[in-house]
């Protein structure tokens, strides 16, 4: 690795790839601005979390092997998601605990893997990102990022550089939004109740924008907010940091 320009392999994540590529491009811009060379290995699909959380260890392992291989050459692996980065960092070692011969490759990958905002602040030492966003923002800390990777101060620190933006925190900011991957379709009624409570929290702040670092949760909360007729704009934090808000309407909003 060149100390000056590390090569970062972007782990796009399946949700960003399919539902909101804008988040991926925002991540690329932030990484490049921070001085990284960004590559996107073609042989990536999904980190395997849906299989892992459904008890399907064998498929989860195949997908994990695919990730290990696809990202073998880069200095860092960065994902615009705490959930996917958390799967790689905290769960791959568990997944392969019965295959000691995989331990070295897994450890090598987990050490290089980061969630986007924590990579920017911790590894690239980005102190501030300049930009402008006019709005009062509330921030949803996604559970895996928060508890598996300790992502909470990093996105907030980065948002401090954005002019016109102020943050209004939710009362119960560390409760789950009810997404939970397959959970939300397996137990839709319970999930619906949880996301409704989260929507209440968001609305109670009076913020006009909800940001977060995980598209799964954001799709869930945005979907509930729009079902309730709310006008709160929902975006991935990378979009605001990268200044990519003109091009792409907020999550779930019509193209104007």
């Amino acid at each position: 690795m060149s100390a000056m320009r590390p090569t970062v392999g972007l782990f796009v994540t399946c949700l960003v790839d399919t539902m909101r590529p804008a988040v991926g491009f925002a991540a690329v811009k932030l990484l490049q601005d921070a001085g990284c060379e960004v590559v996107v290995p073609a042989a990536q699909t999904c980190c395997g979390q849906p299989a892992m959380n459904s008890g399907d260890r064998s498929d989860a392992k195949s997908l994990a092997r695919q990730v290990i291989k696809a990202f073998a050459q880069v200095d860092y692996v960065v994902a615009p998601s705490g959930s996917c980065a958390g799967t790689i960092k905290t769960h791959y070692p568990e997944l392969f605990d019965d295959e000691p011969e995989m331990a070295a490759a897994v450890a090598d990958l987990t050490e290089r893997t980061w969630e986007l905002t924590s990579f920017l602040t911790t590894v690239m030492k980005v102190a501030r990102v300049d930009g402008r966003y006019d709005g009062v923002v509330t921030y949803h800390d996604s559970c895996s990022g928060l508890r598996e990777l300790g992502v909470r101060p990093q996105p907030r620190a980065l948002l401090e550089g954005i002019d016109g933006l102020s943050v209004k925190e939710m009362e119960m900011r560390d409760t789950c939004c009810g997404f939970g991957g397959m959970f939300c379709v397996k137990y839709p009624e319970i999930s619906g109740k949880m996301v409704d409570a989260k929507a209440d929290e968001v609305l109670a702040t009076g913020a006009d924008t909800l940001l977060g670092g995980d598209l799964g949760c954001l799709l869930n909360i945005a979907g509930r907010l729009s079902r309730r007729g709310s006008r709160v704009r929902v975006r991935h934090v990378a979009e605001v940091l990268a200044g990519d808000i003109e091009e792409t309407p907020p999550i779930g909003a019509p193209r104007s």
Binding site: R20, V195, G223, I251
Partner: peptide, 11 residues
Amino acid sequence: WTGARDLPAPQ
């Protein structure tokens, strides 16, 4: 999914 919430359309 859509019982409780809208599904945001992909890009």
